[in-house]
Design a protein around this nucleic acid. Sequence first.
RNA 1: GGCGCCGUAGCCAAGUGGCUAAGGCAUCGGAUUGCAAAUCCGACAUCCCCGGUUCGAAUCCGGGCGGCGCCUCCA
Length: 574
Amino acid sequence: MYNTLSKRKEPFATVEAGKVGIYLCGPTVYDKAHIGHMVGPVIFDCIKRYLTYRGYKVNWVVNITDVDDKLIKKANERGISMLQVAEENIEDYQSNLAALGVDQIDHFPRATDCMPEIIAFVEELVKQGNAYESEGDVYFDVGKDAEYGKLSNRSIESMQGEGGSTGERKRHVADFALWKSAKPGEPSWESPWGAGRPGWHIECSAMSKKLLGETFDIHGGGLDLVFPHHENEIAQSECCHHKPMVLYWAHNGLLRKGGDSGKIGGGDAGEKMSRSKGAGGLADLIKRQGGERIRFFLLRTHYRSTVLFNEPAIEEAGTGLEAFYRLFKRYTRITGHDFYALKPNTHRSESKSDGEAASAAAEAASPAARCRERFIAAMDDDFNTGGAIGELFELSTITNKFCDEANLEGDGKNDMAAIAKFTSLLTTIKELANILGMFLKPPATAGKGDDLTAKLMPLVIEVRAAARKNKNFAVADKIRDTLGPLGIVLEDRAGGTEWSASQTGLGGTAPGDSAPGDSPGAKWSGAIMGLLIQLRADARAAKDFATGDMIRTRLGEIGVTLEDRAGGTEWTLA
RNA sequence: GGCGCCGUAGCCAAGUGGCUAAGGCAUCGGAUUGCAAAUCCGACAUCCCCGGUUCGAAUCCGGGCGGCGCCUCCA
């Protein structure tokens, strides 16, 4: 595991054997979250899943900073309380996390819930002589900390400047506030130094101590927190406890705006994402793309890398994801079972009986087993999710190939041994993907059409099947060519024709004007009705009244009435 | 200016001393299909440049060039 403090990868050894304590710096909740806030939670969600898979008991803490100058400012602007601002944004943050499948967090401490611990921490630092009171504020005295600067690799001497607005209260410009006195009207807590609130960094020292102890295993956060936030945390905690605060400091790379993303923030392409530069709209993004795509997009790259973010890149990731979803449907076609109901191993090695051990040994040399080994090797190497995902794709190819060669959708459909092997391959995919928090449950279906579309499509397929049977390929192709631009794809398979719909076709090619409030599904069903009416007209023109009547009858069964008028056929839904 | 990070195919991206440099997207062939889609097979990389260390370098060292982060609030 890479350690920011030593600037190298180190063997993984925990404070207490078999247990891991993780602290991740969460957001300051003065505004809505943006996608950059999701990078840390997603990777640490994977880290916890993987460590759990490898047999560790993991305790993961993500703090919420709900008291801060920016919250106060925001509350004043909006004429509501600081607490209300915090509540709103915490809800936004947590619903975004849930959408991305981040559900491994054990504790969500809030700064305002830990005031006694924070005040006690500051008192201890003052008592030990590492901090001093000044006009109601309390400052950490960096000069008393010989190791100050070791995380971000800088020296106190190099720190110049005027020390900010409170510069004259400090002994050294690099000293930072542990406690800030309250101005009239500001939210405050009573303390030995009068009414006030905590400085930005002290809460993390206090909360990590409270929940994980004086020395814990992993401390994470964005690369932009290394200085001053984490530098100051180390200083506070280690001066207070006289022992290492953290074994591994893990910082994730930052998201930058990609070239053709257009409107993700205010500034130029390539700039860092940040709320102060207008990034936002995470909830909308999730609505458009779905959480799993975004998660997959983030995990394709190693967590310490900078990621260029733009929406087309997320769509590209989604394209790769589709191949897995198709494989899962293939599994259902063949076995009648649901991929998501498979129950893979949740730990690296489940205990095996002697007989199983023998077959396991035989299987160990298989391509699939090698994929699993490489997947684990990748995760062992500083949580290399990008490398791990490559193995997942490799497994997908192996599985499809096996399926093709055993002809499981044809002559091989009764080959129970082959189907068992097939199922085992899918189970392996699920086992490994679940470590990444992927494929745990079916993705939220974004725009699979409305009820009417779902009812009309079987009829369309039936009409097309009849046409194909009669070698009337012009009609069959017309149907597919009409649906294609809408994003509806027809796939002819041994067992019949399947249809699937994607949001992408609705971009600019959907017929009619998109009145606000129109669901995508309504566009689909409208276009499909247009197609059916056209098909019926064509059939009648060709004196194929059987087909024409069949269309009308079947539409009637699903509640659609056709009326032939001089100007054309109109339809109404009962 | 100080402290760091990065430069691998059209794009994204693993690999950090040694088998044919993973994988994805896109593109182009082939198998399959009535035609498609899907699936499979195949094609597609002077590893930014120059020098050095080494039997051997994308990988280590030095020097360029180019991109970026932090040093102020930031995930």
